[in-house]
């Protein structure tokens, strides 16, 4: 019995007092953690760790209690700045400040996620000065080009838009009343007129006399009323009325008397009528 107990004690002494959980590689600059189980003197992180050291750690959790004889679980967080595998044990001490000897190996693997050409040290990683400057210059140059190009484009577009285009040929001057009357009167004398042309002829004759008597500013109704009372204009206007509007007078050609009155309108050039204003 006693022998058995001694064997157990011997076995307990052979078992290392510290067990660390496996941990996966941790990227540089990212906090990694490892949990260890340790029996015996309480542990702490090394004081005054250098900020420039490749790895910094601290003990962040301790369970279940502070009784020195129990097995304790420590959570140790670390941040690596240089890629590689590091033993955490040199950075762990007993609470009394003595080095924690006899701890199981605790390796932390720090990896770099940057391309290999950037090396292993996080602090030495920096952008290529030429790279950064060239892009900055490119951006500035692009902005400058756009800045200059916009007013140039606007100016050119305006220049194109305002370019004097070839003017269309001036429209032929509007036909005068005489010009409009002439073919109608000519047709009336020869072939006869359609109803539409007869209406047109009558209204043109009124317009002609209205212009000649300077009634154009009057209302058309007033102008026509005055023309019908005008001793000279009324001769032709009343004759046309008789031709076109009286019952039974549907002849396409005017009678002889009206033809005589219309005759001056056939001539080219100014129309001279047998009146005082001649």
């Amino acid at each position: 019995m006693i022998g058995s107990l001694l064997a157990i004690v011997c076995l307990m002494n052979l078992v290392p007092p510290t067990r660390a959980t496996d941990q996966s590689p941790t990227p540089r600059g990212i906090t990694g953690s490892v949990t260890i189980a340790h029996t015996g003197e309480l542990l702490r992180a090394k004081l005054d760790q250098e900020l420039s050291s490749p790895l910094i750690l601290r003990v962040t959790d301790l369970t279940p209690d502070l009784a020195p004889t129990a097995e304790h679980r420590y959570r140790i967080d670390f941040i690596g700045t240089v890629a590689g595998t590091f033993d955490l044990r040199p950075l762990i001490y007993h609470r009394d400040g003595t080095p924690a000897i006899g701890l199981a190996p605790m390796d932390a693997t720090i990896i770099s996620e940057l391309p290999k050409k950037f090396g292993t040290d996080l602090f030495t990683v920096s952008a290529q000065p030429a790279f950064a400057i060239s892009h900055y210059r490119t951006v500035i140059a692009a902005i400058a080009i756009i800045w200059i190009a916009i007013p140039i484009v606007v100016f050119v577009r305006r220049l194109i838009r305002n370019r004097p285009v070839a003017l269309p040929p001036p429209p032929a001057s509007a036909p005068t009343l005489a010009d409009q009357l002439r073919p109608l009167v000519e047709s009336a004398m020869t072939d006869g007129l359609s109803t539409r042309d007869q209406a047109r002829l009558e209204l043109l004759v009124m317009a002609f006399w209205s212009e000649r008597r300077d009634f154009t500013s009057l209302n058309p109704a007033q102008a026509i009323s005055k023309l019908r009372a005008d001793p000279e204009a009324s001769t032709l206007i009343l004759a046309i009325e008789s031709w076109l509007h009286q019952r039974g007078s549907v002849a396409p050609r005017p009678a002889h008397e009206l033809s005589t009155l219309l005759d001056p309108f056939r001539a080219h050039g100014p129309i001279y009528l047998d009146e005082g204003s001649r």
């Binding site: 109803t195 539409r196 209406a199 209204l203 509007h245 009286q246």
Partner: peptide, 13 residues
């Protein structure tokens, strides 16, 4: 009262 074709044309136009 007689309404001629010419007069009708004037009105319709």
């Amino acid at each position: 009262v007689h309404v001629s074709e010419v007069f009708l044309r004037d009105c319709v136009d």
